[in-house]
Amino acid sequence: MPKSSLLSTSELERSSVVANNTMNRERGLAGVNSYARELGFDPLSRLAARPHAPSWLDLCSGEGHALREAASTLPDDAALTGIDLVGPLVRLPAPPTLTEVVASVSTWAPTRTYDLITCVHGLHYVGDQLGLLARAASWLAPDGLLAAHFDPESIRWADGSAAGRATVSALRSAGFRYSARHHRLTLEGGREVTLPFHYLGADPAAGPNYTGQPAVGSHYADARFSTIAGA
């Protein structure tokens, strides 16, 4: 795909594949369709074991069911934040420990760090996936955990060729762990992360990914060799 055909972040977020996605809208904490199943661990148990007031940031949080379930169990000084481009379709009063933000994860930034940061099948609809991962790494507490679903096949070079292998290698060098079997990235401990990629734009017509649902293709140049102005 030529670079000129790629969409900017604002254009992408108005596209049908992003605006109408329902991938993570209804998941609860536990059970068949749950965060515990998708992430391979129980977020509530991890948060409840914290020696201090627990904090959880959920990116692309959908209806926020998992956050609300956690808020009903965790102590009153917990800090839970959900970020979603659309936000809950059913508007309900939020518990005191929960902040629901309707915003783009591509531009939003917190004013604190978190013990747990999750993104359940949300990166599939983000243009600059690698930029978000690098930013989120700095939002983690020193002993926090980031867990997100990630599809290396969605990362492409400017000419459309596969960049997944180089991407996974760079992420691992930065401290991330990647499970190809589960399509999950994890990072333990907050840190500054710089990845050698320059974001070019997104392709909303990339087609279905491993979930079987339409997803976004994210295109990059190698920042180590890029001659793009400002790269």
Score class of each variant (00 low, 15 high):
Leu47Thr: 10
Arg156Thr: 08
Ala158Gln: 06
Leu89Pro: 01
Leu74Ala: 10
Pro75Ala: 14
Leu89Trp: 06
Ser5Leu: 14
Gly127Ile: 06
Leu185Tyr: 15
Phe41Tyr: 09
Asn20His: 12
Trp139Asp: 04
His149Pro: 08
Val193Asp: 03
Ser16Ala: 15
Ser61Phe: 13
Thr118Asn: 00
Thr113Asp: 12
Leu123Arg: 00
Gly212Thr: 05
Leu171Cys: 03
Pro214Met: 13
Ala94Ser: 12
Ala147Val: 07
Glu13Ile: 13
Tyr35Cys: 01
Leu130Arg: 05
Arg165Lys: 10
Leu92Gln: 01
His182Ala: 10
Ser10Trp: 15
Leu195Thr: 07
Pro54Trp: 15
Pro54Met: 14
Leu130Cys: 08
Glu26Leu: 08
Ala202Cys: 05
Thr22Asp: 13
Leu67Gly: 00
Arg37Ser: 10
Thr113Ala: 13
Asp203Lys: 10
Ala180Ile: 00
Ala223Gly: 03
His124Glu: 04
Ala205Phe: 11
Pro75His: 12
Leu116Met: 00
Asn21Cys: 14
Ser218Phe: 09
Ser173Phe: 02
Ile83Asn: 06
Pro88Lys: 02
Leu145Val: 02
Cys60Trp: 12
Ile228Met: 08
Ser104Gln: 01
Thr81Ile: 12
Glu69Asn: 10
Arg68Gly: 00
Val17Pro: 11
Asn24Pro: 05
Leu6Glu: 10
Ala158Pro: 06
Leu140Tyr: 06
Tyr178Trp: 10
Arg112Pro: 00
Val126Thr: 03
Arg25Phe: 15
Arg91Trp: 10
His124Pro: 02
Leu187Tyr: 02
Asp42Thr: 12
Asp222Leu: 04
Asp77Gly: 07
Arg27Trp: 15
Leu98Gln: 00
Arg46Gly: 02
Ser169Lys: 15
Phe150Tyr: 09
His183Ser: 04
Pro208Glu: 04
Asn20Tyr: 09
Leu145Gln: 01
Ala206Ser: 07
Arg27Ser: 10
Leu29Ala: 05
Pro75Val: 13
Arg165Thr: 11
His52Asn: 09
Pro214Ala: 12
His219Lys: 06
Ala94Asn: 03
Leu67Pro: 00
His65Glu: 14
Tyr178Pro: 04
Pro2Cys: 05
Pro214Glu: 08
Ile83Val: 14
Leu200Val: 05
Arg14Tyr: 14
Pro95His: 03
His182Asp: 13
Thr99Val: 11
Phe150Met: 07
Pro93Thr: 02
Ala141Arg: 10
Ala78Glu: 01
Ala223Asn: 02
Leu187Asn: 01
Ser61Asn: 05
Ala158His: 06
Asp203Arg: 11
Val86Glu: 08
His198Thr: 08
Ala19Cys: 08
Ala215Cys: 07
Ala170His: 13
Thr81Pro: 01
Thr81Tyr: 12
Thr9Gln: 15
Arg184Trp: 03
Gly122Pro: 01
Met1Thr: 07
Pro142Ser: 13
Gly40Gln: 13
